[in-house]
Nucleic acid binder design. Structure first.
Length: 134
RNA sequence: GCGGAUGGCCGGAUGGCCGCGGGCGGCAACGCUCGAGGAAAGUCCGGACUCCACAAGGCAACGGUGCCGGGUAACGCCCGGCCGGGGCAACCCGAGGGAAAGCGCCACAGAGAACAGACCGCUCCGCAUGCCGGAGCAAGGGUGAAACGGUGGGGCAAGGGCCCACCGCGGAGCUGGCAACAGUUCCGGCACGGCAAGCCCCACCGGGAGCAAUGCCAAAUAGGGACCUCACAUGGGCGGCCUUGGCCCGAGGUCCGGGUCGGCAGCACGAGCGCGCGGGCAACCGUGCGCCCAGAGGCAUGGCCAUCGAAGGGGGCGACCCCGGAACAGAAUCCGGCUUACAGGCCAUCCGCGCGC
């Protein structure tokens, strides 16, 4: 057990004023469009992202956990961790007008320490954004 | 105490911070409240509910069920009983109607496997006394999953239901039981092998598709119909051709019907759950009181932390200490079952053995 300073809980360094206007992707076409765009792989998950270019400022996010991840329990748990991750990071680090998709990996998505997954997502976002800028 | 049988239950706990889905209140900020399972699983049976078809019923085909009685909305489920088999016992297992309607099959071995048959044999007779011929027999040996009744006695040349007793089998009666069936008496004569999970026969049951069912509301765009107004001017088309006349092809408006995206309903108050009482051996039924118990549509029930923590490891003579951290698994129209998966634990009843009193 790593003793953590109690005055530094994880969620308090969120930007307080950001409107949490995340929406979830609902259409297969949106998922496919993201899959064809920018990608960044991390040990716990794969990030896909693209600029919709429709002028809307909202950030949208989708989650994918295929049968390769495991049975229904494993898939649900993976998606829940990814959802929790997206809620904490994307309102601060995501770009307005973009869609993101987080793809779960077998075992690692459920097992990797959450703090590392948070760092992974921040780095992956930078990578995807940088690739889009050049 | 040890070993076993059956039935049932639980299957991580508490708290903090940040979140998610539904409901309620509020203009809002926000607050309150509820939020996975015994299997939510497999989708194997039975229903509810919808739409389609047919509506009385009968026959045929196909599929299913199959000891008896009860329970239930219903079932292939459950309860109680019967029969057969296993176990010292508690108890467990069994698709358990019909093979004296018919067809088919019964490998290998064996003489012979279904309206019997004679390999080794047994007995008698004959003589040419032999590895002979004739006649009788099916008890004994051997094969097999199964051998055309079994055991004992009489009888016989040797044998054989040939005769007798008992058992088995079949028929009739009586007694008990709602029944399956059991017990018993008399009679018969040995006539009747197994498989129905091969076909079949008999009895009973069964329309089809499914919540992405189905119903309602209904935008833009394109298109359909009715009416009104304008244009009815050029042009085109139609009635064989020409003239006159008519209709259609145009624009605008109103209305109607179908209908995609989308929205709403179905969609969670029910064959509901808990406790008590009554009936019943039980499954279950009746009744009183109390309760409201997930409801999404990219699919909520999560992330992090703290305290505690079963199994399992390791150390110690020991109290105890250290490591370790929870099985199978995640609702999608809803119920009743079945089946399958499941770390570990708890409770109740019963049986056998041992010890003590």
């Amino acid at each position: 057990m790593t003793p953590k300073p109690p005055e530094a809980p994880v969620a308090t360094d969120l930007p307080p004023a950001v409107c949490v206007c995340l929406q979830t992707l609902r259409r297969r076409a949106d998922f496919l469009a993201c899959a064809r765009a920018r990608k960044a792989a991390t040990p716990g998950f794969i990030l896909q992202g693209r600029d919709r270019g429709d002028g809307e400022a909202i950030v949208r996010v989708g989650f994918t956990a295929s049968k390769k991840v495991g049975n229904a329990v494993a898939r649900n748990r993976a998606k829940r961790r990814l959802r929790a991750l997206a809620r904490e990071i994307l309102p601060g680090k995501g770009r307005p007008g973009w869609d993101y998709v987080l793809v779960a990996r077998r075992d690692e998505t459920a097992r990797r320490p959450f703090a590392e997954m948070q760092r992974d997502l921040a780095k992956a976002l930078e990578k995807v954004h940088r690739a889009a800028d050049t």
